[in-house]
């Protein structure tokens, strides 16, 4: 696993590219509490990277560091070979990093279509004044072009029948799918998924797994996901980072991680004597 300077070939034969994002010695402290302790790992172009760990291990904090909600106390985030300075979340979004949330963060008052279109706003260029003129400034034209792209995503995720429904009225599983659609609409380089299958039944989990694989396959999107369902993680991901109490205790392919003694101890507990 260590000789992959220019990528590697996964078990199912996909070619993975070079390093797209690298976390270098990230430490995150809140006052006296250390949420993340000196963690480094890389994310390669085209792979599905999972972050797992018991509750409170610091997985979501790590995702929040990547997406700009937290500025790491120490350490650096490198993206596309460039060191990223301290950034606000909306600036991170413009770099091409999109995410979904553990507890759905959709815009309840807007329709599914509007929610997904909002995902494209970093790609829409018309300003306030051209919006005001609408028909005469090309703003309408721009809107329809983006609508076409959004319709493709709607097709892809099979949510055609609800496109005009206000999001607040949708059931949980569909909301998760709409949130994925909104993140995809931004055409991200990296897609961060924070527990995409939390609270789903088996069927919904299967659907969501298929969508994640399809996204990776069809758009070539790099995916970083946090998940608790071990079966899902082991099936989906190419490489796994394991965290426990803010520290990295394992990193490698699902098979390597599964046999790692530290990981087994963290999940099953270890006898203290």
């Amino acid at each position: 696993m260590n000789d992959m300077s220019d990528g590697y070939v996964t078990a199912d034969g996909r070619q993975i590219g070079g390093v797209l994002m690298e976390m270098k010695n990230i430490t995150l402290k809140f006052g006296g509490v250390t949420a993340i302790k000196d963690i480094s790992f890389d994310v390669r172009a085209g792979e599905i990277r999972a972050i797992i760990g018991p509750n409170g291990a610091g997985k979501s904090s790590m995702l929040n560091v990547i997406s700009g909600f937290y500025v790491p106390t120490e350490g650096e985030v490198w993206f596309k070979g460039v060191k990223r300075g301290p950034m606000r979340p909306y600036q991170v979004a413009r770099l091409g990093i999109a995410r979904t949330f553990q507890n759905i963060a959709l815009f309840d008052g807007m329709s599914v279509l509007d929610n997904i279109l909002t995902g494209r706003l970093t790609l829409m260029k018309k300003g306030l004044l051209s919006q005001a003129a609408w028909w005469w400034s090309g703003a309408a034209q721009e809107e329809y072009e983006h609508r076409e792209k959004v319709e493709k995503i709607i097709d892809f995720l099979e949510i055609q029948n609800i496109r005009k429904t206000p999001v607040g009225r949708l059931p949980y599983g569909l909301k998760k799918r709409v949130e994925l659609a909104r993140a995809l609409a931004a055409e991200p380089k990296i897609l961060l998924l924070d527990e995409p299958m939390a609270g789903m039944n088996v069927e919904e989990k299967e659907d969501m797994s298929r969508f994640i694989l399809d996204v990776n396959d069809e758009f070539g999107t790099t995916i970083v996901l946090i998940e608790h369902d071990m079966g899902v993680v082991m099936d989906l991901s190419d490489r796994v980072v394991v965290m426990d109490y803010g520290k990295k205790i394992g990193d490698g392919t699902p098979d390597e991680v599964r046999t790692n003694q530290d990981v087994i101890d963290a999940y099953l507990g270890v006898a203290h004597d």
Binding site: A98, F107, T122, E143
Partner: peptide
């Protein structure tokens, strides 16, 4: 015209959930 397009969606995004709005690129 403003409310039907990008500008309006940004406003409503901030109204409905400002954290999510920021994560998809809305400058608050």
């Amino acid at each position: 015209n403003l409310t039907r397009g990008t500008v309006g969606r940004k406003w409503m995004a901030i109204r409905d959930m400002d954290i999510a709005a920021e994560i998809i690129g809305v400058n608050p």
